[in-house]
């Protein structure tokens, strides 16, 4: 429970953002950094999506145009870019689900911090699996520069 004797706060959050205190749900510490990360990944994905719909629309120009542009996604530098993109999506997605739980689940505000650790662990596991698979496929079919 949040308070033991003397009203000392032992739970994950504190009522007021006292100087040098532990912050609130939103300000300082994990709550704020996860928000910064959520915001940056959201903006990044948005701009990617604008470009992505434009490059996909090349299927209406000609097969050659589409294949030429999409070929760029198979360059080693772009392979790393794809890992970065997927890393951003996976973080935004898992942290987004955490935000939804904080908002709608009764115990959400109590466990928001533990849930952030769960997000980071799940993110790491997913990204290791994704990167290994993506790189393996890439090296198998790579025809050199």
């Amino acid at each position: 429970m949040p308070c033991d004797d003397a009203g000392k706060v032992t739970d994950v959050t504190q009522t007021k953002s006292t100087p040098g205190g532990r912050g609130t749900l939103y300000r300082g510490r994990e709550g704020m950094w996860s928000w910064v990360g959520h915001r940056i990944t959201g903006v990044g994905i948005f701009f990617f999506l604008l470009v992505h719909v434009l490059d996909t629309s090349l299927v209406r120009v000609s097969p050659e145009a589409y294949n030429a542009v999409i070929g760029a996604y198979k360059h080693p530098i772009m392979i790393l870019g794809e890992i970065g993109l997927v890393g951003a999506i996976v973080f935004h997605a898992f942290n987004g689900l955490r935000i939804i739980l904080v908002d709608f689940w009764k115990q959400g505000t109590r466990y928001h911090r533990q849930m952030l650790w769960a997000v980071l662990v799940l993110w790491f596991v997913t990204m290791v699996a994704f990167s290994v698979r993506h790189l393996m496929i890439f090296f198998e079919g790579w025809e050199g520069f």
Binding site: T56, V59, P63, Y66, N67, I70, Y73, K74, I79, E82, V86, I89, F130, R133, H134, I137, F138, G141
Partner: peptide, 21 residues
């Protein structure tokens, strides 16, 4: 979307006009 386009089949190498079609 990411699973069907990147994780199965030839992954990133399979993506071309015929794949979208």
């Amino acid at each position: 979307h990411l699973w069907t386009n990147l994780m199965v089949g030839d992954g990133i190498h399979q993506i071309d006009f015929a794949f979208v079609a």
